[in-house]
Write a protein that binds this DNA or RNA. Structure first.
Lengths: 212, 212
DNA sequence: GTTGACACAGAACAAATAGTCGGGTACTAT
DNA sequence: ATAGTACCCGACTATTTGTTCTGTGTCAAC
């Protein structure tokens, strides 16, 4: 029995991937059939079964559009998987307050300037354990001058740097930071507060850490 | 007419998001109904219609699991959208050869060390215009010592730094770099070649650039 | 005290979708 | 030459899934 993925199987994998990127959900048998330029569903099923046997995709029987591309599949496509980039949110709580490691303070200005105003911070601490950002994750921050209400921002308060949600409202206290965790109170804007940038990505530790 | 998103609508949005993250594809009406703890599909339809009216999600009539969360929806969840992070691959071609801006050379060692060996490079040049990486994109690189065949790597050849796919094969030339573009030839490994790290993410310029 | 938005119920119906059966061709390796 | 594998055809059935219709109760606003 041959194990390697055939060209036709790779074609189908690419079709599934493209479809998901364009539509936001996986294709049906018929849609794959059309794109493969074949006439029978059986052709599609054959290929899918083999992809599944090789653990490139995963399906659920009798369930519409139930194709999920597994990590091996993403690797074959040369793309990072969807899920690890978004993190696995454990509940409804959005991004929470976090602490930044000390290195940031001394190096921020250099890095911000040289890296086109985008830099990485490693999150430490466990105060956000129930939210989307966990200890060890990397946070990608882009320095900005203007902020829109709802942005997740990196903010410096006195000597401390944390991440909060920035809210600008029509009602008092008008401009404030929201930890989005019932444990913590909102923080009204003061002049001791500097917005450093906007969080544009969270890289889960499980993903960027080498697979050992 | 009220415009704001109701708590129940937010609940459903979170349910859809969680489902996609866990399963790899969106839920059916019944699955959403169960999670909302209601008995009728009508309840789900009502909520979905409102979410769609507010452009938080998008659906296709009569199509199973055809829910896509729109950028506004992701913003409400405090999560980056799926698609922009993966880039929109124009064809089957995987990651291609790119040039790195000059800054990298002088600063790499510092940044690599301080940022937990993960750093960002801005891609310049248009030699990869037909692939997943475009001019102006940001590439996230993690320094590594061991590489697996198939990894997309950052490699230094003499004075030049480029990105290629690293292949280790059972047949000659055994270890080589693959541009994955018919225009370019593969490059067998030499001792003038240093693998600097592994590309773990591509940030499309359209995403990280501030919306103006 | 009526209006409208919100949230929900129950059931019948229509469409989309997956799966099955029973074949076929072409190529490769033993 | 023969077995195995990849790939394919066409018609059919079974299941899943979405939609429509007709209702109820609540609550806040005007």
């Amino acid at each position: 029995m041959k194990k390697s993925t055939t060209p036709r199987q790779k074609e189908l994998l690419q079709i599934i991937y493209d479809y998901i990127i364009n539509e936001g959900y996986p294709p049906t048998f018929d849609e794959m059939r059309e794109r493969l330029k074949v006439v029978s569903n059986q052709s599609v099923i054959d290929l899918l079964n083999k992809l599944e046997k090789n653990r490139i995709i995963k399906r659920n029987e009798n369930i519409a559009r139930s194709i999920a591309i597994l990590p091996i599949g993403y690797e074959m496509l040369g793309k990072p998987p969807l899920a690890p980039f978004l993190g696995v949110s454990s509940a409804g709580a959005p991004i929470n307050s976090i602490e930044i490691t000390g290195e940031w303070q001394t190096l921020s200005s250099d890095i911000a300037k040289l890296k086109d105003e985008v830099f990485i911070l490693k999150v430490s601490g466990d105060s956000m354990i129930n939210s989307g950002i966990d200890d060890g994750d990397l946070v990608l921050v882009k320095t900005e001058k203007e902020f829109v209400s709802g942005n997740v921002v990196l903010v410096q308060i006195n000597d401390e740097v944390t991440i909060k949600r920035f809210i600008s409202d029509d009602n008092p206290p008008y401009i404030y930071l929201k930890p989005e965790n019932p444990k913590y109170d909102i923080i009204p804007a003061t002049d001791k507060m500097t917005l450093k940038g906007k969080v544009i990505s969270v890289l889960k530790e499980s993903y960027w850490r080498p697979v050992s």
